[in-house]
Write a protein that binds this DNA or RNA. Structure first.
Length: 612
DNA sequence: TTAGGGTTAG
């Protein structure tokens, strides 16, 4: 279709009524002014805008604020607009006012030229042009993007000076600015002082908490928002809240959010559904995740990425590779993160040859330069398969300096395959990097203990103490009847301990009957087998399971949590929900128990397996 | 007479 230029509509430019000489001239000018304004709005390209600009100049109308302002507006707000051209229009305006400055500031912010936007603001003040309530949201956005607290605080001062502290748009911009800069105290302070809040105010606050990892506060703000009746199911809010639920392992709120979504949101939304999928998978609900994944109308590369990593974490390596093939068939290009998921899947499922082939495809087929994470996966893949020398060769030949994660991965593999020599090399590297932790020392002493080199065990323990590192006893939380209970390994002082230890013995007897024998080599002490068995039975997860078996009914679910999540929840008095898909006497492992994380795969939720 | 806030997922 050939587009007709706005200038090829002559009726728009010609005045048609007949009046007395003076009135006629005035009306004619007015009409021309209105028509030029109308033409500015109708422009669909910079070329057309330039033509309209010519006509405005030709009719002597550029001094009309109506014409020049609308021309500038059109140039700044259109997708085809140009700040260079906007600048030439602006420079031709004799006496630019607040609106013109606002438009220029807005344009610079849109073009990510934040310093220029702030410079223009100061020029505006120098020219004694008084800013208005529209000026500040643009400026605060610039400061937020720059993460420049100092400049933003100055602007906040100007907001007070010019009396716009009660403008809801300015306040929302301030919440966003402080949130993006990590200044949560100021962020909440602005929010608290607001007399009227919009959905955007809540959205900015919720996003600020989520962005800064304040997951409990994020979910709390979401609940407050619903309580105050200021609720609208919006993508950004739902995604922030789901992200918080995922990190907290708060399946209950996550599921309620899903319910809200079904009731209030029209149709499917790939972004929200992908967040939901991530929440289900990281909370341990693989079946629900798979159901959601299959029912999704639209899937993008992030959806596939979440599903692949989720399957990998749950120990379903082969299934993860099927999803990866499906992704490629859909024509979606994998990125570096997808490949981390794919390699993790291979690593956890022992698919060594497939993993090696896939590693080569990263660069050869998809032109992605392998990152240190990919090399880490490769070391892990070979290490888990017992190909320790090859893993060391990968470390030696990788194009970047190996980090602690890579050496730790090799150290872990050395423990699995009892390789003292390489284990010592890996531990030494970690020491040289000054990144060795208590767990690394313990792994090394485990390697020595297995070889019954008790002297080296003692030396390693001494080195650990000399490094100021101490072994903190493991602890687990279990949720029973909406209350969370904490169990510390080897702790005999718990009030309910009699019942718990009776149950532990019952569990052990039943496991023995099923043919399970405990691996006492995990106990690094030079004590007899009976003592080792006793120590194993007092691990915090087992204590928690025993307690839950006593206090829950047959078939009800048991969820055990690691310290990171539950400590936080206990602190704020939140309780974790029960999961409906795990039965108490048939717990499933959420993946290969020997698996170690190469990258963050979610909260520290442990689904404990005590079957052999 | 024109303009402003929240963009979140692996």
């Amino acid at each position: 279709m050939v587009k007709t230029s706005v200038l090829h509509q002559p009726h728009l430019l010609i005045p048609h009524e007949d009046h007395s000489q003076q009135t006629q001239e005035s009306i004619s000018l007015k009409l021309k002014e209105q028509e030029c304004m109308s033409l500015s709005k109708k422009c669909s390209s910079l070329k057309e805008l330039k033509q309209v600009h010519c006509h405005i100049v030709k009719f002597g109308l550029f001094c009309s604020s109506l014409c020049s302002s609308n021309l500038l507006l059109s140039c700044v707000q259109s997708s085809w607009g140009s700040m260079d051209y906007a600048c030439s229009i602006f420079n031709q305006i004799d006496d630019p006012g607040c609106f013109e400055f606002n438009m220029m500031i807005r344009g610079y912010v849109r073009d990510m030229d934040f310093d220029e936007a702030l410079f223009l603001y100061h020029q505006m003040l120098d020219m004694e042009v008084v800013p208005d309530n529209f000026t500040y949201p643009f400026l605060l956005k610039a400061c937020a993007r720059l993460r420049d607290v100092k400049k933003g605080v100055q602007i906040h001062g100007h907001v007070f000076k010019y009396g716009y502290e009660d403008d809801v748009f300015v306040q929302n911009s301030l919440i966003n600015f402080y949130g993006k800069c990590g200044e949560l105290r100021e962020c909440c302070c602005v929010f608290e002082k607001m007399e009227q809040r919009s959905v955007a105010s809540w959205s900015a606050l919720i996003a600020a908490h989520a962005r800064n990892g304040l997951w409990v506060e994020c979910v709390g703000s979401f609940r407050d928002m619903i309580r105050e009746g200021c609720w609208r199911p919006e993508e950004s809010i739902l995604v922030s809240v789901l992200s918080a639920c995922t990190n907290l392992g708060d399946y209950n709120t996550g599921q309620c959010t899903h319910g809200n979504l079904i009731r209030n949101m029209c149709g499917h939304n790939v972004v929200v559904e992908t967040s939901l999928l991530d929440m289900y998978l990281k909370c341990g609900y693989l079946k629900k995740g798979l159901y959601l994944f299959d029912s999704m109308v639209e899937k993008n590369h992030l959806t596939y990425s979440v599903m692949i990593s989720g399957l990998a974490t749950h120990g379903c390596g082969a299934e993860a590779l099927v999803v990866f093939s499906k992704m490629l068939k859909e024509g979606l290009e994998p990125d570096d993160v997808v490949y981390v998921g794919v390699l993790t899947a291979c690593s956890h499922a022992g698919l060594v040859e497939e993993g090696l082939q896939l590693f080569n495809r990263i660069k050869n087929e998809h032109m992605i330069e392998p990152t240190i994470q990919h090399y880490g996966c490769l070391v892990d893949l070979l290490g888990r398969a017992g190909r320790l020398d090859e893993a060391l060769q990968v470390i030696k030949n990788m194009p970047m300096e190996p980090n602690d994660v890579v050496w730790r991965s090799l150290l872990g593999a050395c423990k699995t395959f009892s390789n003292i020599q390489l284990g010592e090399i890996a531990a030494e590297k970690l020491m040289q990097m000054k990144l060795i932790n208590a767990s690394d020392f313990l792994v090394l002493s485990h390697i020595y203990a297995e070889a019954r080199r008790w002297k080296d065990v003692a030396i390693t323990r001494t080195k650990m103490a000399e490094s100021g590192l101490t072994q903190t006893p493991g602890f687990s939380f279990v949720e029973v009847k909406k209350k969370i209970y904490k169990f510390v390994s080897q702790d005999m002082a718990w009030p309910q301990c009699n019942g718990v230890y009776d149950m532990l013995h019952q569990m052990e007897w039943q496991l023995k009957f099923e043919g399970y024998s405990a691996d006492t080599s995990q106990v690094l002490l030079d004590v007899d087998e009976e003592e080792k068995m006793e120590r194993l039975s007092r691990r915090s997860q087992k204590l928690a399971i025993a307690f839950a078996l006593i206090h829950t009914s047959e078939g009800s679910p048991i969820r055990i949590h690691g310290q990171n999540v539950s400590e936080l929840l206990v602190h704020v008095g939140l309780v974790m929900p029960a999961s409906p898909n795990v039965t108490a006497n048939r717990l499933e492992s959420s993946g290969n128990r020997k698996s170690r994380k190469q990258h963050s795969l979610g909260p520290a939720i442990i689904r404990v397996a005590y079957q052999s």
